[in-house]
């Protein structure tokens, strides 16, 4: 299982075009998880697509996503889980526990 999250200041970037880092999470075995942080110099749709393709990512978790980004990513068979809000750690945990789905977008509340 491999997915990526658009991140800004350790939280899901509210807007995909404000992404500072793309966090690529790979679950190799039951408990082995590797996390790769890719810094983004610019985050236009093509740059993001390139990073996802280079890292063989098929699912992207993000906050708000503008049409031009979603169209390009969907056209390249990237599944988008949009409108997610929260801390990167919480989001990873929730996705691995199958608590975030693309057809029933779930928002992640901050643990206070």
């Amino acid at each position: 299982m491999r997915f990526a999250i658009c991140s800004l200041n350790h939280r899901v970037a509210p807007l995909i075009n404000h992404t500072k880092e793309i966090i690529v999470v790979s679950k190799v075995q039951k408990k082995d998880i590797s996390i790769k942080e890719i810094e983004m110099a610019s985050c236009n749709a093509l740059e993001i697509l390139k990073v996802l393709k280079d890292n063989k990512v098929k699912t992207l978790i993000c906050g708000g996503i503008k049409e031009e980004y979603s169209q390009l990513l969907e056209k390249n068979n990237i599944k988008i889980i949009e409108n997610v809000i929260g801390d990167i750690g919480d989001v990873i945990k929730m996705y691995l526990h199958k608590n975030i789905h693309s057809n029933n977008t779930k928002r992640v509340r901050i643990a206070k």
Binding site: L8, R11, V12, P14, L15, H18, G63, G64, I85, R107, R109, I110, K112
Partner: peptide, 18 residues
């Protein structure tokens, strides 16, 4: 219910927020 308690910039998502 969804918005209460969230940071405003994560709900309104504008270019000006940051």
């Amino acid at each position: 219910d969804e918005a209460m308690g969230q940071r405003c910039y994560e709900i309104f998502r504008t270019e000006l927020c940051y």
